[in-house]
């Protein structure tokens, strides 16, 4: 019944319906508008938010600190590419998730870590942390932390060896502040580590963890671009203050400020716990998740055998995410119970 002669008016205007002819009409269901975000945009935004921390790491530990970071990125991206070829799926490297995993892993390695082992960590992070679960979105555990847990279990010496770190200025810290606190001399500990040092950096630790200030800048980037929500970060920080404070009131531990500024607490709160895939997606669940990580971390630091505890806390809470999601499901609009 298409009768071109029946066109009332506009046909004579030349262009008319040429562009919208039956041939190229798309039959797509609504909505026909989009917010404009893509997964890869999110990934690259987080990558940018990590740059201050990377910069601080290089500033304090020297340019050689880049070596393990690059190693981890190479391992992660390479593994992603290979897995994509094996599965004959579309190339998922450009979406940036593997790059981000590698960068995250690199930033939680000691500055003098062997680059070959960092590559292995990257491969494990993407391969065991993500690919075996079915790829991006289906993984249960934070891939970067899976990589780190593997490295920690495989090369405990290398992963806790801070002595090779070429510290810039006069810093002598060979152990991390937390390590000094747990195993060192209290006097040495009190003398060396000041709050301003913890805030600015220049203390022993992983490449990305050293400067709290750089992490806070990254957090600001994530919050302003609305890539991450404050809920998990906020509840984890508040949880850290509350639990650490409670224990220090009971005479156990150094108190909230030290706990939050030292080790991986901030880095974990800002970049690890907020990973979409492995954190709850209900509002209430996110509060529970953050507070749970804080509680576990403080418990491990106070009563466990390890000086640090953020990594295992996040991994443990990752495992609890399906349960948290189920329990904290939002009430459907208008439902009474």
């Amino acid at each position: 019944m298409a009768d071109e002669s029946s066109v009332v008016d506009g046909a004579k205007k030349g262009v008319a319906l040429k562009a919208v002819s039956e041939g190229n009409l798309e039959l797509v269901t609504s909505p026909h508008s989009h917010f404009g975000w893509t997964t890869s945009r999110i990934m690259w935004t987080v990558t940018i938010a990590l740059l201050p921390s990377l910069g601080a790491g290089i500033f304090y530990f020297g340019p050689l600190a880049l070596v393990p970071v690059i190693g981890a990125i190479v391992g992660a991206v390479g593994c992603e590419w290979v897995v994509g070829r094996i599965n004959k799926k579309a190339d998922t490297v450009p979406d940036g998730s593997a790059f981000l995993t590698g960068l995250l892993l690199g930033l939680i390695l000691p500055p003098g870590f062997s680059p070959l082992h960092a590559v292995l960590g990257g491969v494990v992070a993407v391969g065991l942390g993500k690919a075996v679960f079915g790829g991006l979105g289906d993984n249960i555990f934070n891939p970067a932390l899976v990589g780190r847990a593997f490295l920690q279990a495989s090369f405990p010496a290398g992963m806790t060896d801070w002595s090779t770190a070429v510290t810039r200025v006069d810093a002598v810290s060979q152990a991390t502040p937390l390590g000094l606190f747990k195993f060192g001399e209290p006097s040495q500990f009190l003398g060396d580590i000041t709050t301003s040092k913890l805030l600015l950096g220049n203390v022993g630790g992983c490449i990305g963890e050293t400067s709290s200030l750089a992490i806070i800048v990254g957090a600001a980037i994530l919050l302003v671009t609305r890539v991450a929500h404050w809920r998990i970060m906020g509840s984890m920080l508040l949880g850290g203050v509350v639990f650490s404070g409670a224990f220090s009131l009971l005479g156990v531990g150094p108190g909230p400020l030290f706990d939050i500024l030292s080790g991986g607490f901030l880095f974990g709160a800002v970049f690890m716990a907020t990973d979409y895939v492995t954190s709850p997606n209900t509002t209430r669940g996110q509060y529970v998740f953050g507070a749970g990580i804080a509680l576990l971390t403080i418990l491990i630091r106070r009563f466990g055998g390890l000086p640090e505890g953020v990594m295992y806390s996040i991994l443990l809470m990752n495992a609890a995410v399906p349960l948290i999601n189920r329990v904290t499901r939002p009430r459907i609009f208008g439902a009474t119970s």
Partner: peptide
């Protein structure tokens, strides 16, 4: 088709 034509037709960028 008639309504679109009455409104000056669609341009080249039209997709849907």
């Amino acid at each position: 088709r008639e309504v679109i034509a009455y409104c000056g037709g669609a341009n080249e960028k039209a997709r849907r």
